[in-house]
């Protein structure tokens, strides 16, 4: 770039030129490493566990899009995740919808819910915004508890994974894994593109200083709503994918604790970092899986980690690493 020549050496070092897909060099390396892990890990670890990690990683990334880049802390993202799971599950089981379409329907229900919910919630900011999202998500929970199609306490069980594009039988975990890996990586890249788009630029400006963005003539509500809907849609896709992986959609997916878990994942990994939610999801899901034998102690350990993160590593795992290496991750 021509302008770079007038910038002093020290200043130029601070912000590297962004290359392909808006990744900085450090991010590109991290992305390649992450992709390598995604490709290699099913040969080493149990694929169902890995699929769970990837579903939650996408969910956390979708959540982080809103809190990390627009500054809106939603406390009701379980609604979009859970409804995504129910709709995908119901469509696949009751209507025999193929998996690719069923998952997209999960994303569509996320967006469809996100539109009115977001429209209501963005009227307020800070804690009030969070409380409105929580209240609306609780309404969705009670709807799911009562509505006949969700199966109440039983949930929707024995959801068939189906045949992808009429070719690939997803019953085998290994085949299913590649679909989940594809959805995760595509979702991750989409989120990264959103953050590094003209829209993302405005989003970050609103996060940094909303009154100033308004004073520049931006109708900030419209941008916030758009980000909200995008985040909800991706959460719905994550929920739908999870329903197919586990053949089940239950109240757990739509309960407020799920909203809390995604906050925890993003915090542990690092809010507003690209890779933080992925690492956070991996940490939390791993803990839940491998500490399951300790029963209720999992929650205590989770709580302790949460407190440790808030007190000691405010930037989260990835945020602290990035800070130590002086790169944006």
């Amino acid at each position: 770039m021509a302008e770079a020549s007038v910038v002093t050496g020290a200043a130029a070092a601070r912000h590297e030129e962004q290359g392909f897909w808006g990744f900085t060099r450090a991010q590109a390396i991290a992305f390649l490493a992450m992709s390598a892990v995604v490709v290699v890990s099913p040969f080493l670890l149990y694929p169902v566990f890995l699929m769970k990690v990837l579903c939650f990683a996408l969910f956390a990334c979708a959540f982080n899009l809103l809190v990390g880049y627009v500054g809106l802390l939603s406390f009701g993202h379980a609604a979009y995740f859970g409804m995504g799971a129910y709709i995908t599950g119901y469509a696949a089981k009751a209507w025999g919808v193929p998996p690719e379409l069923a998952i997209l329907m999960g994303g569509a229900i996320g967006a469809a819910l996100g539109l009115p919910f977001g429209w209501l919630a963005i009227r307020r900011s800070g804690i009030y915004f969070s409380m409105i999202t929580l209240a609306l998500a609780q309404m969705v929970f009670f709807f799911c508890l009562q509505a006949p199609f969700t199966g109440g306490e039983d949930g929707i069980q024995a959801i068939p994974r189906g045949t992808l594009l009429g070719v690939f039988d997803l019953t085998a975990d290994f085949t299913m894994y590649w679909l989940v890996a594809f959805i995760f990586l595509a979702g991750f890249l989409l989120i990264h593109r959103i953050v590094h788009s003209p829209f993302g630029q405005v989003m970050k400006a609103i996060r940094d200083n909303e009154p100033r963005a308004t004073s520049l003539g931006y109708r900030v509500e419209q941008y916030k709503l758009m980000a909200f809907v995008l985040s909800a849609a991706l959460a719905g896709i994550a929920g739908g994918t999870k329903a197919l992986v586990f053949n089940i959609a239950t109240l757990t997916d739509v309960r407020w604790t799920m909203s809390g878990e995604v906050v925890l994942m993003s915090l542990v990994g690092g809010l507003g970092t690209v890779f933080g939610p992925v690492v956070g999801a991996a940490v939390i899901v791993t803990m839940q899986n491998y500490l399951a034998e300790f029963g209720a102690w999992v929650l205590v350990i989770q709580g302790a980690i949460f407190i440790a993160c808030v007190l000691a590593f405010r930037r989260g795992v990835v945020g602290e690493i990035g800070n130590a290496l002086r790169v944006k991750l």
Partner: peptide
């Protein structure tokens, strides 16, 4: 981000922000 206002609404989340370089 102020110059970007000249584009009208910036809702194109699928495009690369490298097109904003025209404002540099």
């Amino acid at each position: 981000v102020a110059l970007q206002r000249a584009r009208g609404g910036s809702f194109d989340f699928w495009r690369s922000d490298s097109l904003l370089k025209s404002f540099d």
